[in-house]
């Protein structure tokens, strides 16, 4: 598991990439990836092209990210989810909260 993040040149969007399993072990790294970015960027992309697995604690972490970036007014996209991850997101109906691309 590795979490990296990049802020766009204009500071308006943040891309967080997760490689490998996205579970509780990513907790601190995932939080650090957005909590230290001030001001909170208007748009957040979570790149999951190289994420292999996602568990319910990862869903919780996504909710924390959503809360941090404005709750209902947040704009968060989940990019490149594989089929298994998409399935987990669908079961929980997370498409109501995140843009799944």
């Amino acid at each position: 598991m590795a979490v990296t993040s990049v802020t766009s040149a204009d500071g308006k969007s943040l891309t967080i990439s997760i490689v490998g399993r996205f579970d509780f072990s990513a907790h601190q790294a995932f939080r650090d990836s957005y909590e230290k970015v001030i001001p909170v960027p208007g748009e957040i992309l979570v790149d999951m092209k190289e994420t292999t697995y996602l568990d319910s604690s990862a869903l919780g972490m996504l909710l924390l990210l959503r809360d941090h970036s404005g709750g209902d007014s947040s704009q968060i996209s989940l990019l490149g989810c594989n089929e298994d991850i998409r399935k987990i997101l669908t079961i929980s109906n997370f498409e109501q909260l995140f843009k799944i691309i």
């Binding site: 909710l63 209902d72 669908t90 079961i91 929980s92 109906n93 109501q96 909260l97």
Partner: peptide, 15 residues
């Protein structure tokens, strides 16, 4: 019978 809603405790009572 599929899941049709977000889990409890996520959606605000208004929504």
């Amino acid at each position: 019978i599929h899941s049709v809603h977000l889990p409890l405790g996520i959606q605000s009572p208004q929504k």
